[in-house]
Design a protein around this nucleic acid. Structure first.
Length: 572
RNA sequence: GGGCCCGUAGCUCAAUGGUCAGAGCAGGGCGCUCAUAACGCCUUGGUUGGGGGUUCGAGUCCCUCCGGGCCUACCA
């Protein structure tokens, strides 16, 4: 038994996430967490809402709520949706928690003591009308290069030229349209990542087997141009974690807060502390996951995230942890994902394009989405959601191959033997061969799951379901029954046990369906089938069961067309 | 502009430089009748984006061209 720490990239507070966000971090992290638990490992699975930053303030302003209230409300909404998708977090925290305030300020203090913080005076655009400094991309104006009138202060979307906000002609606030912008001097803290470049570089080099996507992005940042640049870790905002040096004030930094990307990863740690508090445990309970000098030496730490998050997890956050000079647990493996596209374009939160988590659950139960999303996870390249593909995959894999197997076995047994596991007969060669084929496939499934090869795991699991249908076809208990009822009883006894085995194996992908299967069998034994023969004899003769409702209803053409039309344009 | 990734069957995707490039779906044929018209077996289908090169051997390595995508540090 190992101890596995799993974190999923934090969803931003600013609205409901779409399926692309879900499959890029939380869902595969949940799959892995569930798998690790099923294999008997001790798991700490952490996620949280990422609540600070300009977009959160603006979203709150739009609804007229105080930002703290807005975040509390949206945290509730996201928590509900996480439950809806059966995301099995040990704790779903908030980056605005007191724990995160303390830890973030602690790290800043340690970094300052280590000489890794620089104070930099810089000029930034301020909008008196908005009462705030404007991040570059919140300034719009005419592109000096191509004349595009809605160029952003960081880059012109039309001609892709990199811009400085002061380059823009007729600049205005993208928030209010105000044109009375001025340049003000302000002081900010920078994390001196450049001083840690070699250390980070060596650390990345020492990691074996990370996805190309992960290491190539890290290497690019480390070696591009002059190498890794220092990074501003404070902002002039109201909502956030006040800049402090540990518990002490930071002269000259009054009224400023830490940058979200500084405090968000620290929330992984803080959320574990939140968990401990919620469980009524002491600090040692969470520190044994995070401090190698306090018990985390044998922890394996795995992070899940979309590719846009990679630089912060490979560089900034490790720099924060290493730079503190304290023995914090560093990540051991980073599983990163590409993007899921929607009907040939991108899912888009701002444009409301695609299917969002709340809408998905209104349409179908979570298992349908979990299965499709995970079996098509964008691991090697961007992948594509289409309604046709979704319908075909779900109907074939879930309804026909798995669901129908459960149906045919339980209904056949009920009609010939009644609703209890039938007695009689003994295994022959066919059953031994099946057990050995299953053992082989299960080993492959286990290996793919352990390696976090998501799509390959799904394919192996499906192949295991197919073995059951093949067995039934060959054994043909419906004809055996006419001449040799005892053998038919043995065959169907095995098939009923196969349902339990499938439930145990499928639980990480399909928690609800697995539960329904177990409930129908009136069984609570989720034991992983390490010994397949034993697993296929687990339910004894005479054990009662019930025929379950149809596990997965098929998606009709009408429903598919209806949804395709409904989600074709912007979110209503 | 720079960097990275991808391009394989109608579709979605596999293949440490080494048998005849494989699966699932879709298509075609056969079988079965327990089951959600479900299941099983067989089968059609490829100049691996184009062109060069290295090698005994290239989907895989190198060059080049075409096409798609991502990142490029003040959104997060």
């Amino acid at each position: 038994m190992a101890r596995i720490l799993i974190t999923s990239a934090l969803p931003y507070i600013n609205g409901i996430k779409h399926l692309g966000n879900l499959v890029g971090s939380q869902l595969p992290a949940d799959l892995y967490a569930r798998y690790c638990r099923a294999r008997g490992h001790e798991v700490m699975f952490i996620c949280a809402t990422d609540e600070h930053g300009t977009p959160a303030e603006l979203a709150a302003a739009k609804t007229g709520e105080p930002v703290a209230d807005y975040c509390a409300r949206m945290h509730g909404v996201q928590t509900e949706l996480a439950h809806g998708f059966r995301l099995s977090f040990d704790h779903y925290g908030r980056s605005s928690s007191p724990q995160n305030h303390r830890l973030t300020q602690h790290f800043a203090g340690r970094l300052r003591a280590a000489g890794l913080i620089a104070e930099v005076a810089e000029k930034q655009v301020y909008s008196p009308s908005d009462g705030r400094f404007l991040p570059d991309r919140y300034i719009e104006g005419t592109c000096p290069a191509c004349g595009y009138e809605r160029a952003r202060g960081d880059q012109c979307e039309n001609c892709t030229k990199q811009l400085d906000p002061t380059d823009l002609i007729d600049p205005r606030s993208a928030i209010s349209g105000a044109t009375d912008l001025e340049v003000r001097e302000t002081k900010h803290l920078y994390l001196r990542q450049s001083a840690m470049r070699d250390q980070l570089d060596q650390w990345i080099d020492s990691q074996k087997g990370w996805p190309v996507l992960t290491t190539s992005i890290a290497k690019k940042w480390l070696h591009d141009g002059d190498g890794l640049r220092d990074r501003g870790i404070t902002r002039d905002l109201d909502w956030g974690i006040p800049v402090k040096d540990g518990e002490n004030d930071w002269p000259g930094m009054e009224g400023k807060v830490f940058y979200v990307w500084f405090d968000a990863p620290i929330e992984y740690i803080a959320a574990t502390a939140e968990w401990a508090e919620a469980q009524g445990l002491d600090d040692a309970a969470w520190r044994r996951w995070w401090r190698t000098d306090e018990g985390a030496g044998d922890v394996r730490y795995v992070q899940f995230m979309g590719k846009d998050n990679v630089p912060f997890h490979t560089l900034s956050f490790p720099a924060t942890l290493m730079g503190s000079g304290e023995p914090w647990k560093l990540v051991d493996y980073i599983k990163s994902f590409n993007y899921l596209n929607y009907n040939g374009g991108q899912f888009s939160t701002s444009q409301g394009r695609g299917v969002f988590m709340d809408q998905a659950l209104e349409i179908l139960p979570s298992d349908y989405w979990r299965w499709w999303l995970l079996s098509h996870a964008p691991e090697n390249s961007d992948s594509e959601f289409t309604w046709e593909n979704f319908q075909a995959s779900v109907n074939k894999d879930l309804a026909d191959v798995l669901g129908n197997f459960v149906s045919r076995v339980t209904k056949f047994c009920r009609s010939k033997f009644g609703e209890a596991v039938p007695e009689g007969g003994a295994w022959g060669e066919r059953e031994t061969a099946l057990a050995s084929a299953l053992a082989k496939r299960i080993a492959a499934y286990d290996a793919q799951m352990a390696a976090m090869e998501i799509r390959k795991s799904a394919a192996e699991l499906r192949a295991i379901w197919v073995l059951g249908n093949e067995y039934l076809q060959e054994a043909a208990p419906w004809s055996t029954f006419k001449t040799d009822p005892d053998t038919a009883a043995m065959q169907i006894r095995l098939a009923l046990n196969l349902i339990r085995l499938y439930a145990a194996l499928a639980r990480p992908f399909l928690p609800d369906a697995a539960w329904s299967m177990m409930a129908a069998l009136e069984c609570e034994d989720w034991t992983w089938p390490e010994d397949v023969e034993a697993a296929l004899k687990l339910l004894p003769a005479g054990h009662a069961f019930t025929v379950p409702e149809v596990l997965f209803a098929k998606i009709t053409d009408d429903a598919r067309e209806d949804w395709a039309a409904r989600f074709a344009g912007a979110r209503p």
